[in-house]
Design a binder for these strands. Sequence first.
DNA 1: CGGTTCTGCCAC
DNA 2: AAACGTGGCAGAACCG
Length: 584
Amino acid sequence: MAIVLSRTNPTSVTASTVDERGELVAAPIALEFAKLAAFVAERERAQAAAGAAAERWVWSDSSRWYGDLLNAGVRVQRCHDLRLSHVILRNSTLAAATDFARAAPSDWSRPAEPLTAAVAPVHSALFDLADTMASGRSAVAEDSVAEYRRQLEAIAAVPDAGRLRLLLAAESVGALIAAEMRNAGLPWRTEVHDAILTEELGPRVPYGTRPAKLEALAGRIRNLLGDNTVNPDSPQSMLKALNRAGLMITSTSRWELAEYTHPVIAPLLEYKKRARLLTANGWTWMDQWIIDGRFHPDYVPGGAATGRWATSGGGALQLPRQIRAAVTADPGWKLVVADAAQLEPRILAALSADTSMAAAGRGVDMYAGIVASGVVETRDQAKIAMLGAMYGATTGESGRLMPKLTRAYPRAIRLVEQAARAGERGELVTTWLGRSSAPPGEDWREAQRRASQPGASTAEESRARSRARDWGRFTRNFVVQGSAAEWALCWMAELRKGLLGIEARNPQAPGHRAAASGPVFDRVPHLVFFLHDEIIVHTPAEHAEEVAALVTDAAATSGRLLFGDFPVDFPLGIATVERYSDAK
DNA sequence: CGGTTCTGCCAC
DNA sequence: AAACGTGGCAGAACCG
């Protein structure tokens, strides 16, 4: 049983209970939007009280619907995200033969519009609908029931749809988690952050002016170059000045500068490092993104081409290690920080059923395992070779090590090579659970067409070959990165299930209130951060040990969900800490 | 002047 | 050594 929520007009919502084929089982209920949260809360409560399996909420876009519910203090157990599922189903090669995949694209094929408001409930679905209508985008949805039915039909038409079902479920619960993490926020101590900034840059100064330590470095750079006007923030200005000083560099990038010996190099690199901190995560960033002691990034599930999550605003994908000490648990709380060790190589071993490679990953350090098997001589070599295999490196040390890897792990290497060849031919590739790559763009195809014609110039031919190889590297990586993203989704989904269990067993847990969390998460362990292969749970200290065990169990369960009995391990690095920076 | 592209660097 | 995947972002540089 599922309940499809759809908006009928700016002030009301329809709740339609449907069966497993998406057929209505009762007359739809009309609700005022303002009463939706209470309605959902009551249904969730009643199911929990009855010990029944949770009903699935079906809606167009979890970030909107669930964002609003969370703002109203209401949590749900399960959902089906129509838009995310639509995109997967339409593009998956597993569903290519269905009417659903063959139908013309609709509004459902377009990505959800990004959230714009910070965290406050100013941007509710209610207002969004008005915006949507005003912007001329057809009032979605409101064929949500029909869309759900179409998706269920499509899945039913796919032979052996088990993996695809798992993917849609994982993607949907991922969308719930994304909304929950945004709502809860990452605990952030601005005074710690400020202390780091002051240490690195000098005391805070108004936006647009250089802090003292940066100004001092800029002065040293000017002196050493004998040029009073050079501006270290301007690549053009720096490049000219360095050329005049006899450094025949072609760019001012860090790696090129590091190749030269000159007194100005050290202070310049130091300047760049600190200036980066100021512009990317300085006081301006802090003012803009830290609200009441929490960082609330806007996660975008499925936002990357491979199915990885993207984020928008605040740069959550790139929190520099420099400032991670500011991520600090509330008093009486802990952070459980975990990351999957060498996730992608392990995923590759499982995808290709390469038992030798999986065996090398039996320990916590897969690269050490590869060395122990005598494939290469050092851990560094093992790492470079593996990354090169997954990214498509052809030159340098990585390229030179490839033959050794191919000899030791022929199945794994064959899998990535085949994915690369498919991409070079313009074909689609598909992850373990069924997410397929987009086809190459029209200009890519045009380039290939032109090059294959009789009168093609050598320039056209080489350009086309280069584009083909580029796309091959993308598809090569897609299968591994995308399948790893699926493992991570299942990991988080299992973990969330476990955390809800803790909550259910501790109904009135008094404990310490989390300082800045809203009513939904102020007393319970909850996910606060996710980045490709690592997670952070913010938990009352008394549950930290149990949470850590759940995190570890969830990783093992995810491995079994995806790969059954295939003997591949997914060990974690895991630490229970006060501060993120203490985790590794 | 505002909008777009480029540069360089951060994360996994 | 700077090729080899996925992203986000700020500020400079460029352009009409």
